Amino acid sequence: MSGDKNIVTLEAADYAAFYIYVILVHPVVVNVGEHLFDNLMERKDFHLVDVKTLTDGSLLVTYEPAKA
């Protein structure tokens, strides 16, 4: 995935702007590429809201920030 322009990275200041996170997970492991969440200063907990399995084996997962 190196050079993939579809990867979106989020800075720590961006986390508060989102209420849900929808992530498409492909069943591939690589040793290169961009991190999804960079520059975290503290732990961020999430609650799994939904999972959909797509026909190609990918997962569409939806998370929301965990309540304190």
Rank of each mutant, 00 (worst) to 15 (best):
F37A: 11
A66R: 12
E42K: 12
E42Q: 02
F37M: 07
V8H: 08
S58R: 13
F18C: 05
L59P: 08
A17K: 07
G57M: 10
A17E: 08
L24D: 08
D14E: 15
G33W: 01
G3L: 08
I7D: 01
A13G: 12
V29L: 12
M41N: 11
P27H: 06
H35W: 06
L59I: 02
L59H: 15
E64F: 05
V28L: 12
N39R: 14
I23N: 11
V28M: 04
H26E: 14
A17I: 01
P27I: 13
T53G: 04
I20M: 05
K52S: 04
G3K: 02
I7Y: 10
L48R: 03
P65Q: 06
H35K: 09
H47Q: 08
E42H: 05
D38Q: 09
L60H: 08
A13H: 09
V61M: 15
N31E: 10
V32N: 15
S2Q: 13
D50F: 10
D14K: 07
V28P: 06
T62K: 09
P27N: 05
A68G: 10
K52E: 14
M1N: 13
D4L: 09
F18V: 00
K67A: 12
N39Q: 11
Y63E: 06
T9I: 02
M41Y: 06
L10R: 11
G33V: 14
T53N: 13
E34S: 09
P27S: 00
A66H: 15
L60P: 07
F37L: 09
V32G: 03
H35C: 15
L48T: 01
A16P: 05
G33T: 02
I20Q: 03
T62P: 04
A66N: 06
A13D: 02
P65M: 00
F37D: 05
V28A: 13
Y21N: 03
K5Q: 00
H35P: 01
T55V: 15
L36C: 04
A13Y: 02
I7M: 07
V29Q: 07
D14H: 01
S2I: 10
G3T: 00
I23M: 15
L36R: 12
D38T: 12
N31W: 13
A16C: 08
